[in-house]
Amino acid sequence: MLDDRARMEAAKKEKVEQILAEFQLQEEDLKKVMRRMQKEMDRGLRLETHEEASVKMLPTYVRSTPEGSEVGDFLSLDLGGTNFRVMLVKVGEGEEGQWSVKTKHQMYSIPEDAMTGTAEMLFDYISECISDFLDKHQMKHKKLPLGFTFSFPVRHEDIDKGILLNWTKGFKASGAEGNNVVGLLRDAIKRRGDFEMDVVAMVNDTVATMISCYYEDHQCEVGMIVGTGCNACYMEEMQNVELVEGDEGRMCVNTEWGAFGDSGELDEFLLEYDRLVDESSANPGQQLYEKLIGGKYMGELVRLVLLRLVDENLLFHGEASEQLRTRGAFETRFVSQVESDTGDRKQIYNILSTLGLRPSTTDCDIVRRACESVSTRAAHMCSAGLAGVINRMRESRSEDVMRITVGVDGSVYKLHPSFKERFHASVRRLTPSCEITFIESEEGSGRGAALVSAVACKKACMLGQ
């Protein structure tokens, strides 16, 4: 009897593995994704193909990295998701002549009506938060230079001027797309009239992360975010950046690689679950690469896999709870928690219980395998993109072996128990001629924006502006 049951459990697990095998990517698959990513990057950089390229390769006008001589107080704003952060950054000489960066910050959550109302409502709310922060720190009387981390696709015309191309991540505030974001912020500050600010720089969160990590390690020339969304930036040779005049030196390019796949480059790798996630998203047909990796989508992918296993009578005796059938019910943090389970399955059992399920031991094991399959594919897909960037940098610099540091931020990278190990191992397999160091950014977005502002202020002083 026991043997029969054991055989049935083994057969069930084997069927589960057959279904989950769809998520496995072979090294040849990853090399294919990497080569296609490089081709799209090239198209994004070139003037004649930029418009139709899915990977936009947006110039950021960040050319210099901090040298350690900029000092002063800077205000930093960070808008990239449902939370908005205001930070005071003091850049100065530390002990023994070292450079020191001290920060104080406060988080504000953005109400739904500000995210989806008008641009005026959104930026009025942001300036209200700045006003509140300055009151708390008794700094209303000071006109501070301000660095703005704005983590949406922007076409820069200068370091302090950028046109919002399109909202992502659930934002829909009308009247912002096609307009200068810094102008919208300046107008809102003017409307309030109770404080003055000098907006000197606007950067993407990947750029802010790279600059913040450069402060720790001067070989950091790539910034990457794996959180709600997924994106990367890197220092490109100016001669390859056709959208900006000049051939000397390097400029940081914001790849906006989340949109890779929007022209069909990933079609052969998309599964039924991916198509369902895409169809029910706020932007169907867009940001397809990001939807395979980002935390906004990972939990939902797992939920759809679990429903398939229920329908195949391989999980929960073929019956799903009402909660499990509800879109968004299986949160991405559950994926991390399930994979963090120590082996007694308590954590998995508790999560499934909150979803109205009474799982068996085998159910718990199957749910864990589903989570591992989805998150491992995410790590491997992400590795193909980064390997594409790094191999490109090595080739354009004609280096036999390139040493490089990548600064990384984002909740999936930082909080998932195995993502970074799987990701690092896969990147290294795909970049055999590179020695890569990964560092995690601390308060990256805010500190990085302030350091970019410090560079901009120093330049302005040198130019006598």
Rank of each mutant, 00 (worst) to 15 (best):
I225C: 06
G117K: 03
C461L: 07
K140S: 05
Y297D: 04
P59A: 08
S411R: 15
T116G: 13
S321C: 14
G299F: 00
Y61N: 04
R303P: 03
T362G: 02
L165S: 15
R377Q: 00
T168A: 12
L357M: 06
E95I: 15
E395G: 08
G246Y: 03
Q347W: 06
G229T: 14
M393Y: 03
L463W: 13
V16T: 02
G388A: 12
L357A: 06
E399W: 01
V154T: 14
P432L: 04
M202K: 10
K39V: 14
L307I: 05
P284M: 06
G162S: 11
V226F: 01
Y273A: 05
T206C: 12
E395H: 08
F195D: 12
K31W: 06
H137W: 07
A232S: 07
E279R: 12
V241D: 04
S76R: 05
G448V: 08
L75G: 02
S360F: 07
A456S: 08
N391L: 10
D363K: 00
E120G: 09
V226R: 00
N204G: 07
N240D: 14
C213N: 15
Q465K: 05
L451A: 11
F260I: 06
V181H: 11
L324S: 03
R303T: 01
C213P: 01
V427K: 00
K32N: 10
I348P: 03
E435N: 09
I390Q: 00
N240V: 07
L184G: 06
V226H: 01
I404N: 00
S76M: 06
Q287G: 08
R308V: 10
G97N: 07
D73R: 03
K414T: 11
G464R: 06
D205K: 08
V86G: 06
R358W: 04
R275V: 12
L306T: 04
G94Y: 10
D187F: 00
E28H: 15
V101W: 08
L306W: 01
E128Q: 11
S151A: 13
K169H: 12
V338D: 00
E216M: 09
E95Y: 14
V154F: 08
E17Y: 13
Q347C: 15
I126P: 00
E177S: 08
Y297W: 15
M37N: 00
E395D: 15
R392C: 04
H317K: 08
Q38Y: 05
N350C: 02
V86A: 08
R5T: 14
Q465S: 14
K346N: 08
Q138W: 04
A11F: 06
S127I: 01
T332K: 03
S321R: 12
M121A: 14
R403L: 10
S263A: 11
E96A: 10
G81E: 09
G193W: 03
V253Y: 00
F23H: 00
D78F: 10
N83E: 14
V200Q: 06
I126S: 00
S398W: 09
E242F: 02
F148M: 06
P145W: 10
D132G: 14
A370L: 10
L185W: 03
Y349S: 12
L301G: 01
G80K: 15
G295W: 14
T82Q: 06
E440G: 10
C230P: 01
A425W: 03
E52F: 15
L292W: 03
V406Q: 01
F150L: 14
H156L: 07
F330G: 01
D132T: 04
A119M: 11
W167S: 15
K420R: 15
E242W: 03
S375Y: 10
V55I: 04
N391P: 00
D160K: 12
V91E: 07
A201E: 05
S433E: 15
V455H: 02
D42V: 13
G246I: 10
V91Y: 05
R377N: 00
P284T: 08
Y413C: 02
N254P: 01
V335I: 09
S127F: 07
F123L: 02
M34G: 05
D198I: 00
K346D: 03
N204V: 04
L185E: 03
R5D: 13
Y273M: 09
G81H: 15
R333T: 02
F152P: 13
S109R: 14
M121H: 04
S280L: 12
R397M: 05
L30E: 11
L292P: 00
N254A: 08
G385A: 13
S54Q: 07
L292G: 03
N231G: 07
L79F: 04
S109C: 09
E268C: 10
S69E: 03
D217T: 08
S76E: 10
R422W: 09
Y413N: 03
L77A: 15
Q239K: 11
A208P: 04
C382R: 02
M115I: 07
L307R: 11
L292M: 15
V226N: 01
V199E: 14
N240M: 06
E157M: 14
Q219F: 13
M139V: 08
P417W: 02
L355E: 03
I439C: 06
V62W: 07
L243W: 08
V412N: 01
Y61M: 03
R63W: 05
T437E: 15
V71G: 09
S433L: 09
V367A: 14
K459M: 14
L25T: 04
V367K: 00
S445H: 14
Y413F: 05
A201Q: 06
L288E: 05
E443A: 12
G407W: 03
G193S: 06
S340T: 13
E236S: 00
S54K: 14
E322G: 13
D409C: 10
F269P: 00
K296T: 13
R308G: 06
A119L: 10
F330Y: 06
L430Y: 02
F316D: 02
N231M: 02
G170H: 15
K102E: 13
I225F: 11
Y349H: 15
V302S: 07
T209N: 05
K291R: 04
S69Y: 14
Q98V: 11
R155I: 12
F152R: 13
V203A: 06
V222H: 01
L355A: 02
Q347M: 15
N204R: 07
E196I: 09
A456P: 04
E395V: 10
Q219C: 15
P111V: 01
E331F: 10
G261Q: 01
S453H: 09
F438M: 03
A176I: 02
C371S: 07
N391C: 09
L2G: 09
S340G: 08
L314G: 08
T405Y: 11
C382L: 11
D42Y: 09
L386C: 10
V406I: 14
T168C: 15
V181G: 08
M251C: 12
C364G: 06
